[in-house]
Design a protein around this nucleic acid. Structure first.
Lengths: 241, 241
DNA sequence: CTGGCCTGAATTGTATACATCTTGGTGTAT
DNA sequence: ATACACCAAGATGTATACAATTCAGGCCAG
């Protein structure tokens, strides 16, 4: 086909649908009609159903009573809660990692990454590259959560992070007021280092507390955004309230 | 049809499949073939696919590379982790409830339920009714989590609890050694009362710590079981390791 | 022996026709 | 006015034929 990626029609349909949902077309509560979507996406009803099922697994849709799917509604409070929950789960992941002990060969790449992150926002005076920072930040979160020995905790965390507004790098940029933003980056990076140190030193409680506090930065940025109410953040497109 | 419940073929198929999985037929890693299942369940492939999608949403199946579904594998360690995770999430739910404050009209039913639970295990000398206790215990957990103002936290907790070995009343009975078991019930009930008191008194940290420790009772019971290795617990049927 | 590549049987992916259910509206009797 | 039954349109549920993909096994060339 011409656009979107995926090897099967169902995966392409899921991709397209996901895009439309997170972009805010189809606000929360919108019912998805198989026939209409099948026409729009130019496939039959079968892959559309398959796609909707996949998005339900991701938590973007929910099954309606009497059949069919509805776009899940998220309020501003849900965004706050999702960030809190991410902090709780990352905290648990780090605590378990600390309690179990992390091998040096897995800690080394993390420390290397920390230095890369330093460079990305111009710790040496170079101009900050926020795109790059966001990417490296996401990578850092993936790596450090990878230290957690529990499949279950990791997969539930993955699930929460799949919500576009709950990902670690959801609200990093957009504040071009370089002063406050730079300070927030410095603080975040200090917490990054402390989290690694806590896991390395098997300080479970410290690691957990740090991860929770770290997630609060996202919440702060969000609340700052809400006050400024500048251009609406794309990560908030599917928020109804 | 003759057996199982549900109004559509897909729901019945999902129910049947779920039963077979949690009973331990089809151990973790088993691949599910649509045609074979369609014949066994006496429906066409379409509702079978639908059923598998639903079970994937529940976390009982996972999508295999190259299509199809596989029964999710759970190890003994996963059971431990799932119980830990339930404790963490219940703790978060209670902390948020405590921080937000719970109205008296929602606390009253909880306190009434606590008295019913007292009666169920013969606090007054009557013989303990473990069936009844397990039911009331589950009800208690539902009610107290219902105090949490966050949809997101509640729904993720619901998801974890849907794993048969992670539910609050998974390992309450089976230890007929009445002495140790009775003591564990007394402790659990004391924690129940403390959790309600902590939420009522807006003591978030206390409520969270209590919920986590409370979940450890399930872990203790499980580990005791593992040592005794008496008849295998049905809640553990789908464990592979 | 090993690597790559056929090839075909088994399996899932897709389209579509038909069956069933859900829902909202309408009419009627109370 | 209200309650109820009923109907029709539209939606999802189901079966099935056919297409495309996957994977294992054997074959051949190196």
């Amino acid at each position: 086909m011409t656009e979107s990626r995926g090897s099967t029609h169902a995966k392409r349909a899921a991709y397209d649908l996901r895009q439309r949902i997170v972009k805010g077309e189809m606000p929360g509560g919108t019912r998805l009609y198989e026939v209409a979507l099948a026409e729009e996406l130019e496939v039959s009803r079968t892959p559309v159903r398959e796609a909707m099922s996949r998005l339900a697994e991701e938590g973007l849709l929910e099954r309606a009573k009497g059949g069919g799917f509805v776009v899940r509604s998220f309020t501003y409070a849900d965004v706050i809660d999702a960030i809190e929950l991410r902090g709780v789960l990352e905290g648990t992941a780090l605590r378990l990692a600390a309690e179990a002990g992390a091998p040096d060969e897995k800690l080394e790449p993390l420390k290397a990454l920390l230095c890369e992150i330093d460079a990305s926002f111009g710790a040496d005076g170079a101009p900050p590259n926020l795109e790059l920072y966001a990417g490296l930040n996401g990578e850092f979160h993936d790596l450090i959560v990878g230290l957690c020995p529990s499949h279950i905790v990791r997969s539930e965390l993955e699930r929460v992070k799949s919500l576009p507004f709950a990902s670690p790098s959801a609200f990093v940029f957009r504040n071009r007021q370089s002063k406050a933003m730079m300070e927030s980056l410095v603080i975040a990076q200090a917490q990054h280092r402390a989290m690694v140190a806590a896991v390395e030193g098997r300080e479970g409680a410290r690691a957990e507390a740090l991860a929770r506090e770290h997630a609060r930065i996202a919440r702060q940025n969000l609340e700052k955004k809400a006050l400024d109410n500048a251009e609406p953040d794309p990560a908030l497109a599917l928020i109804v309230d």
